[in-house]
Amino acid sequence: MSKDPTDIQRRAIELDAAYRAGDLETVRRLLGDPPGFPNCPQPFELGCAGAPLDYAFCWSPAAMIYALLALGADVNYDAGDGFPALFTLLETDRADKYELLAHLLDHGADIHRRGINDWTPLHYAAAQRDLRAVEILLSRGADPHLKTRIDEGLSALEEAERNGYHEIAAAMMASAS
Protein backbone atom coordinates (compact mmCIF):
# COMPACT_ATOMS: atom_id res chain seq x y z
CA MET A 1 0.00 0.00 0.00
CA SER A 2 1.22 3.46 -0.88
CA LYS A 3 2.43 5.61 2.00
CA ASP A 4 1.58 8.82 0.12
CA PRO A 5 -1.04 10.55 2.30
CA THR A 6 -2.81 11.98 -0.75
CA ASP A 7 -3.05 8.54 -2.35
CA ILE A 8 -4.26 6.96 0.90
CA GLN A 9 -6.93 9.64 1.30
CA ARG A 10 -8.07 9.23 -2.32
CA ARG A 11 -8.29 5.45 -1.92
CA ALA A 12 -10.18 5.79 1.38
CA ILE A 13 -12.77 8.05 -0.25
CA GLU A 14 -13.08 5.71 -3.25
CA LEU A 15 -13.41 2.68 -0.98
CA ASP A 16 -16.18 4.26 1.06
CA ALA A 17 -17.98 5.26 -2.16
CA ALA A 18 -17.64 1.70 -3.49
CA TYR A 19 -19.12 0.25 -0.30
CA ARG A 20 -22.00 2.70 -0.41
CA ALA A 21 -22.64 1.89 -4.08
CA GLY A 22 -22.45 -1.86 -3.43
CA ASP A 23 -19.57 -2.18 -5.92
CA LEU A 24 -17.92 -5.38 -4.71
CA GLU A 25 -15.27 -5.56 -7.43
CA THR A 26 -14.08 -2.01 -6.76
CA VAL A 27 -13.95 -2.72 -3.02
CA ARG A 28 -11.86 -5.79 -3.68
CA ARG A 29 -9.53 -3.90 -6.04
CA LEU A 30 -9.07 -0.97 -3.66
CA LEU A 31 -8.22 -3.39 -0.87
CA GLY A 32 -5.52 -4.85 -3.13
CA ASP A 33 -7.34 -8.15 -3.80
CA PRO A 34 -6.22 -9.51 -0.43
CA PRO A 35 -5.84 -13.23 0.20
CA GLY A 36 -8.88 -14.68 1.92
CA PHE A 37 -11.26 -11.97 0.71
CA PRO A 38 -13.93 -11.39 2.05
CA ASN A 39 -12.56 -12.78 5.32
CA CYS A 40 -9.61 -10.48 5.59
CA PRO A 41 -8.70 -7.53 7.76
CA GLN A 42 -9.02 -4.18 6.05
CA PRO A 43 -6.30 -1.54 6.29
CA PHE A 44 -6.99 0.81 9.17
CA GLU A 45 -5.48 3.71 7.25
CA LEU A 46 -8.32 3.43 4.70
CA GLY A 47 -10.86 4.07 7.45
CA CYS A 48 -12.53 0.68 7.26
CA ALA A 49 -10.82 -1.55 9.80
CA GLY A 50 -12.50 -4.85 10.53
CA ALA A 51 -14.05 -7.36 8.18
CA PRO A 52 -15.64 -6.23 4.90
CA LEU A 53 -18.98 -7.62 6.09
CA ASP A 54 -18.76 -5.46 9.22
CA TYR A 55 -18.27 -2.28 7.20
CA ALA A 56 -20.96 -3.28 4.72
CA PHE A 57 -23.60 -3.54 7.47
CA CYS A 58 -23.21 0.16 8.13
CA TRP A 59 -22.86 1.55 4.63
CA SER A 60 -23.78 -0.86 1.86
CA PRO A 61 -27.01 -1.92 0.19
CA ALA A 62 -28.32 -5.37 1.05
CA ALA A 63 -27.18 -6.73 -2.31
CA MET A 64 -23.57 -6.11 -1.27
CA ILE A 65 -24.08 -7.98 1.99
CA TYR A 66 -25.69 -10.89 0.14
CA ALA A 67 -22.78 -10.92 -2.33
CA LEU A 68 -20.23 -11.01 0.50
CA LEU A 69 -22.13 -13.89 2.11
CA ALA A 70 -22.28 -15.72 -1.23
CA LEU A 71 -18.48 -15.39 -1.42
CA GLY A 72 -18.23 -17.05 1.99
CA ALA A 73 -18.00 -14.07 4.35
CA ASP A 74 -17.77 -15.39 7.89
CA VAL A 75 -20.83 -14.27 9.85
CA ASN A 76 -18.95 -15.13 13.03
CA TYR A 77 -15.88 -13.02 12.24
CA ASP A 78 -13.55 -12.03 15.05
CA ALA A 79 -14.89 -8.84 16.60
CA GLY A 80 -12.20 -7.45 18.82
CA ASP A 81 -14.31 -4.36 19.42
CA GLY A 82 -17.11 -6.26 21.20
CA PHE A 83 -19.51 -5.92 18.28
CA PRO A 84 -19.83 -9.23 16.42
CA ALA A 85 -21.93 -9.36 13.25
CA LEU A 86 -25.35 -9.56 14.88
CA PHE A 87 -24.52 -6.70 17.25
CA THR A 88 -23.24 -4.48 14.44
CA LEU A 89 -26.36 -5.16 12.40
CA LEU A 90 -28.66 -4.53 15.37
CA GLU A 91 -26.89 -1.22 15.96
CA THR A 92 -27.86 0.08 12.53
CA ASP A 93 -31.04 1.87 11.56
CA ARG A 94 -31.28 0.07 8.21
CA ALA A 95 -34.80 -0.38 6.86
CA ASP A 96 -33.86 -3.98 5.93
CA LYS A 97 -32.26 -4.82 9.29
CA TYR A 98 -34.73 -7.56 10.21
CA GLU A 99 -34.53 -9.29 6.83
CA LEU A 100 -30.74 -9.21 7.10
CA LEU A 101 -30.89 -10.49 10.69
CA ALA A 102 -32.84 -13.55 9.53
CA HIS A 103 -30.45 -14.00 6.60
CA LEU A 104 -27.39 -13.90 8.87
CA LEU A 105 -28.98 -16.47 11.16
CA ASP A 106 -29.70 -18.63 8.09
CA HIS A 107 -25.99 -18.35 7.24
CA GLY A 108 -24.96 -19.67 10.66
CA ALA A 109 -24.52 -16.53 12.75
CA ASP A 110 -24.08 -17.69 16.35
CA ILE A 111 -27.27 -16.63 18.11
CA HIS A 112 -25.49 -16.80 21.47
CA ARG A 113 -22.23 -15.16 20.40
CA ARG A 114 -20.93 -12.97 23.19
CA GLY A 115 -20.13 -9.33 22.64
CA ILE A 116 -19.88 -6.15 24.63
CA ASN A 117 -20.64 -6.63 28.35
CA ASP A 118 -20.59 -10.39 27.63
CA TRP A 119 -24.09 -9.93 26.27
CA THR A 120 -25.72 -12.22 23.74
CA PRO A 121 -27.51 -10.68 20.74
CA LEU A 122 -30.74 -11.07 22.72
CA HIS A 123 -29.33 -9.00 25.59
CA TYR A 124 -28.27 -6.37 23.07
CA ALA A 125 -31.61 -6.26 21.24
CA ALA A 126 -33.45 -5.99 24.57
CA ALA A 127 -31.18 -3.18 25.76
CA GLN A 128 -32.05 -1.32 22.56
CA ARG A 129 -35.75 -1.96 23.23
CA ASP A 130 -36.00 -3.56 19.81
CA LEU A 131 -39.02 -5.83 20.19
CA ARG A 132 -38.99 -7.02 16.60
CA ALA A 133 -35.33 -8.12 16.83
CA VAL A 134 -36.06 -9.78 20.18
CA GLU A 135 -38.94 -11.71 18.59
CA ILE A 136 -36.81 -12.83 15.63
CA LEU A 137 -34.00 -13.98 17.91
CA LEU A 138 -36.42 -15.83 20.19
CA SER A 139 -38.09 -17.52 17.22
CA ARG A 140 -34.66 -18.74 16.12
CA GLY A 141 -33.78 -20.23 19.50
CA ALA A 142 -32.17 -17.44 21.51
CA ASP A 143 -32.14 -18.38 25.18
CA PRO A 144 -33.65 -15.60 27.35
CA HIS A 145 -32.20 -17.28 30.46
CA LEU A 146 -28.55 -17.29 29.33
CA LYS A 147 -26.64 -15.19 31.85
CA THR A 148 -23.61 -13.01 31.36
CA ARG A 149 -20.41 -14.33 32.89
CA ILE A 150 -19.36 -10.93 34.25
CA ASP A 151 -20.79 -8.08 36.29
CA GLU A 152 -24.12 -9.10 37.83
CA GLY A 153 -24.52 -12.24 35.74
CA LEU A 154 -28.00 -11.41 34.50
CA SER A 155 -29.95 -13.03 31.70
CA ALA A 156 -31.58 -10.98 28.95
CA LEU A 157 -34.94 -11.63 30.62
CA GLU A 158 -33.66 -10.44 34.01
CA GLU A 159 -32.14 -7.33 32.39
CA ALA A 160 -35.44 -6.54 30.62
CA GLU A 161 -37.43 -6.99 33.84
CA ARG A 162 -34.98 -4.92 35.88
CA ASN A 163 -35.06 -2.08 33.35
CA GLY A 164 -38.83 -2.04 33.03
CA TYR A 165 -38.96 -3.26 29.43
CA HIS A 166 -42.26 -4.98 30.08
CA GLU A 167 -43.23 -5.82 26.49
CA ILE A 168 -39.81 -7.31 25.82
CA ALA A 169 -39.81 -9.27 29.06
CA ALA A 170 -43.29 -10.59 28.25
CA ALA A 171 -42.11 -11.76 24.82
CA MET A 172 -39.20 -13.58 26.44
CA MET A 173 -41.41 -15.21 29.08
CA ALA A 174 -43.89 -16.32 26.40
CA SER A 175 -41.12 -17.91 24.34
CA ALA A 176 -39.75 -19.77 27.33
CA SER A 177 -43.06 -21.47 28.12
Rank of each mutant, 00 (worst) to 15 (best):
G153F: 08
A126Y: 06
L68V: 00
A85P: 03
L104N: 00
E91Y: 12
Y77Q: 09
A85Q: 10
S139L: 06
L31Y: 04
W119I: 07
D7F: 08
D110V: 13
L68E: 12
D93R: 04
I13L: 15
L15Y: 02
R94S: 13
G82Y: 00
P35F: 13
D130P: 14
G82H: 03
R114M: 03
V134Q: 04
I136W: 05
S139Y: 05
L105E: 08
L86Q: 09
L138D: 01
L69P: 00
Y55S: 14
A170C: 01
R94L: 04
L71I: 01
G47Q: 05
F87Q: 04
T148I: 09
R114G: 10
L157V: 02
I116F: 09
Y165N: 04
K97V: 12
G36W: 15
G47F: 06
S177P: 11
H103Y: 10
I8R: 07
A142P: 07
P43E: 12
E91F: 11
L100D: 06
I8P: 02
R113I: 01
V75Y: 10
L146R: 15
D96K: 01
N163Y: 15
D16L: 15
D96R: 01
G36C: 09
A160Q: 07
S2G: 13
E99H: 09
D7R: 05
P121K: 15
R162I: 05
C48H: 15
L138E: 06
L122G: 00
E99C: 00
R28I: 12
R113T: 05
K97M: 14
T88E: 10
D110H: 13
E159V: 14
A18E: 10
A85D: 04
D4R: 09
F87K: 07
A17P: 07
L86K: 14
Y98D: 12
L100Y: 03
K3R: 12
T6M: 10
E161T: 11
P41C: 11
W59P: 02
E167I: 03
T120E: 07
D81L: 03
D93F: 13
I168W: 01
H123D: 09
A63D: 03
G22L: 15
Y66E: 10
A56N: 08
A67V: 09
P84L: 13
A176I: 01
L100R: 07
E152F: 11
L137D: 05
K97F: 07
A85G: 13
G153L: 08
P84R: 01
G141S: 05
K147R: 13
L146P: 12
L137M: 06
R149T: 14
I111K: 03
L69G: 07
L69R: 09
L101H: 10
C48F: 08
A156D: 00
R140C: 07
L154E: 12
E167L: 04
R114N: 02
N39S: 09
L154R: 14
G22Q: 02
D78P: 04
I8Y: 06
E152G: 12
L89Q: 03
E25L: 15
V27H: 08
D4K: 01
W59F: 15
I116L: 11
E152L: 11
D78H: 10
Y66K: 13
H107D: 00
E167T: 11
T148L: 11
L101R: 12
D93S: 08
I116Y: 14
P52E: 03
E159C: 13
L146G: 12
G82A: 06
P38V: 05
